[in-house]
Nucleic acid binder design. Sequence first.
DNA 1: AGGCCGATCTTCT
DNA 2: GAAGATCGGCCTC
Length: 182
Amino acid sequence: MMGKLLVHATAEGLSAGRIVETEAYCGPEDGAAHSHNWRRTARTETMWGPPGHAYMFLIYGMHWCFNAVVAADGVPHAVLIRAIEPIEGVELMAARRGMAATRRELTNGPGKLCAALGLDAAHKGVDLVGPGLFLSEGRGTGEEGAIKTSPRINIDYAGEWVDKPWRWYEAGNRYVSVKPKE
DNA sequence: AGGCCGATCTTCT
DNA sequence: GAAGATCGGCCTC
């Protein structure tokens, strides 16, 4: 998923960003995943389905987060997109976010990038083949940083799973949500 | 630059 | 009835 382009086409226009930060959630074993302990409910149903669909969830009653379901039908694994680098439709994203297009706060978090791309409840379960919402190969700028890993963000509740290095981010990219220590 | 806190509501207990 | 895969405003240093 890292480095690919996440594209959303609407009547307002096209907006897209290059994926620079992700986290893997591997239920049912993974204590941090919404699908942990075989939890299969109306909310998580998409995660249990076939790969290539959008698992959207509302967090803290306010922010939508986008995941790509990635494993076989019946295996509830998903990749949370935590940050993108704006590539296409940057002014449209800025308008949706109500801030200047140059700020890193435009898309440096899972809720922020959804607001910027215009993703919400309407995208629950949608097929990522398109035409509205889809992934495509990113175009290299030749300035990509190395891909690094770290523990996942804000999953203190997850017991022994807290320390799994299942977060990936592009080193040095200004849109990465949480700056690495050291 | 970094810490604290309130917002706001679905989901599951 | 509580907690949460977050965000942004306001505060202090």
